[in-house]
């Protein structure tokens, strides 16, 4: 497979959030600001990359019938690592993301990559796929976080550019759904061209 294409597909063409609609819970729940979205995206990217590597290495030793539980245990181990490392070194971000860090384990996007890609492809392709899709996920979450932060608190990455409060609804729950709805419409339009 063409590796460059394999790497870039996660950004727009097969973007996990905008096109495949996977991993929506963290995508909506953690993106109150661009920084939180990026932190969540990078944590997920680490898990998807590491689990892709391990799954592609062990794919020949795991019996077909028990493969899903195996993948879940592998993913859960890496999620525990991320959880403990974040709690130790980035307590503020860990506090903000809260419940959504242990919930990376049930992010269908991570399991989806292990099952649909890493279990059928070589180590190199899996690494590239994990990095590309992880970056695509980070890109989507950062974009959504930035859109909500700009509209909701007139700021981007914490830098306020207009005085005042902005449209508070975009920081709250309803704004997440509406902002993502319009971003998906935009991605669909870009994909059609």
């Amino acid at each position: 497979m063409d590796q460059a294409k394999n790497f870039t597909k996660g950004f727009i063409r097969e973007n996990p959030v905008f096109i495949l609609m996977l991993g929506l819970c963290p995508a909506l729940g953690t993106t109150t600001s661009a920084f939180n979205g990026m932190g969540m995206g990078l944590a997920t990217m680490f898990v998807v990359l590491m689990s892709n590597i391990v799954v592609s290495l062990i794919k020949n030793f795991v019996p077909n019938k028990v493969r899903i539980p195996c993948y879940i245990v592998i993913i859960a181990s890496f999620v525990t690592i991320v959880d403990l490392v974040m709690a130790g070194f980035m307590p503020a971000l860990h506090e903000q993301l809260g419940l959504f860090i242990p919930l990376i384990v049930v992010n269908c996007f991570v399991l989806g990559r292990a099952e649909a890609f890493a279990s059928k492809n070589t180590l190199l392709s899996s690494v590239i796929d994990g990095t590309g899709m992880g970056l695509g996920f980070t890109f989507a979450l950062t974009l959504l976080g930035a859109a909500r932060e700009i509209l909701g608190s007139n700021a981007i990455f914490g830098l306020q550019f207009i005085e005042g409060d902005g449209m508070l609804v975009f920081i709250l729950a309803p704004g997440a759904f509406i902002a993502l709805g319009y971003l998906i419409a935009l991605a669909n339009k870009l994909n059609k061209q």
Partner: peptide, 21 residues
């Protein structure tokens, strides 16, 4: 046209969330 499918459902869910607020 552009809102068909998922986008309109997400916007509807957003309005539902607004109502629940």
């Amino acid at each position: 046209e552009g809102m068909k499918g998922n986008p309109i459902i997400l916007v509807a869910a957003g309005l539902l969330a607004l109502a629940f607020m």
